[in-house]
Design a protein around this nucleic acid. Structure first.
Lengths: 230, 230
DNA sequence: TCCCCTCTTTGAGACAGAGCAAAGAGGGGT
DNA sequence: ACCCCTCTTTGCTCTGTCTCAAAGAGGGGA
């Protein structure tokens, strides 16, 4: 059975009235995705929208010439796959479970339904998309103006913020992430990422490992990211 | 006086009821901006949101270390400066009039007002922002995976689509745009843009000039942009 | 426990594009 | 009509990063 409290607690549904919530619960279907599974495929007809309940997803796109690109990481509580609400009919990317994950899915039609009848939900969603737009613009500015090291620093800081777990003075990225992944987030190669992270290790900024990243000195990384003028 | 028909015809306000429209008209203020003027400044407190009625704006950001970046071009009918609706309190960029332009401005508070009472407006706005998010992701993918020539090709194609005027088989970008501008849209230098465009001229793809760009062979550019696998 | 597979590290060479420099060239203002 | 200022073009050098290559290294499965 689907946990009402769980759904109720999702920020995105905040302010929904009881009847809308009932309807949501009635139509939701819960799915589990083993590590490595895809929730849906880029290009597929968009039939459902989703919320991630537990786990972590990487949303990947493949370009026409076969290159990979990671659009974003989906964290618990995040809405994803709602492309159709934006006028698209196909999913623009492929969400891949980075760890065993659990999602809730609703048929796409419900989205318009709720949007029409719940201004609050529409505004919530609009703001959520707006924040993502902001974030995308930040990344664009970075990609345009910064060199690789700064971009990787930004990516790592972002990961620390959205998927970081504190242990003492250190912050561990809470899911397996490879050098390749970071390269695909920042538009570079795994080799360059590896070199940069190795270099950071010698400076005591981070600690690396197989699919592992621990931030030891966030302030130092921020300095490298260079968004505060010195 | 502000033209009711003009406001009524803006796609973004489509579906608003008469009373909301009355209110909009009552609170709108029209402003003219000479070529080169800014509508507001990056970092300024966001007090108003805007619609561009006539003209063309370039939205520019300056990074902490002084580099310039063009976020987008605002075309007639576009909403801009609505950052506060997304939870921001300051404008993230500076819109600069590329040609003499006319805008309508409303106090920010009205935005929430209309959003709350007009689900349709909320949905319209959400979709508009969503489309922009899509576009931003497209650019991110490009920046990550393509070399400069492909990125410049994409930028030019985009300009042709949103600000292109057909004359015969050619498409002219309908506002003054410099090599520097294109460089700031694609994360490169004016030198490289100049070289690329010169090269394209010799191949008959485009015709250049001082702050001028005419596309002669759109299909050829698309091929260079390389989003259709060959 | 061992082996294999994947991920990571590191080296060396090549190249796209940045940076620096300077010479055209078109337009607007006087 | 001229001049100046800005924009554009083009050459050369330098370097950050990619590419190619190959050697570790950690973990999971048998």
């Amino acid at each position: 059975m689907i946990d009402r409290e769980l759904v109720d607690a999702l920020p995105i549904f905040h302010g929904l009235d009881a009847s809308a919530l009932d309807k949501l619960l009635a139509h939701a279907s819960q799915r589990s995705h083993a590590k490595g599974d895809t929730v849906f495929q880029q290009g597929e007809e968009a039939t459902h929208f989703y919320v991630l309940l537990r786990g972590r997803l990487k949303v990947q796109q493949v370009t026409a010439d076969g290159q990979q690109f990671i659009v974003r990481v989906v964290n618990p509580g995040d809405l994803f796959g709602f492309a159709m609400a934006l006028g698209r009919t196909q999913y623009p990317g492929t969400p891949i479970a980075a760890v065993d994950s659990v999602t809730l899915a609703w048929p796409m039609g419900m989205m318009n339904d709720i949007l029409q009848h719940n201004p609050t939900f529409a505004i919530n969603t609009m703001q959520m998309i707006g924040q993502r737009l902001d974030a995308a613009h930040d990344r664009l500015r970075e990609m345009s103006t910064q060199e690789v090291e700064g971009r990787v620093a930004h990516a790592v800081i972002r990961l620390a913020q959205e998927a970081g777990v504190k242990s003492g003075s250190e912050i561990r990225i809470d899911f397996p992430i490879s050098r390749q992944d970071i390269a695909e987030m920042t538009g570079t190669t795994l080799h360059t990422v590896s070199r940069i992270i190795s270099h950071w290790e010698t400076k005591g900024l981070v600690k690396g490992g197989r699919q592992l990243l621990v931030i030891a000195d966030l302030a130092g990384l921020r300095r490298l990211a260079g968004d505060e003028a010195s």
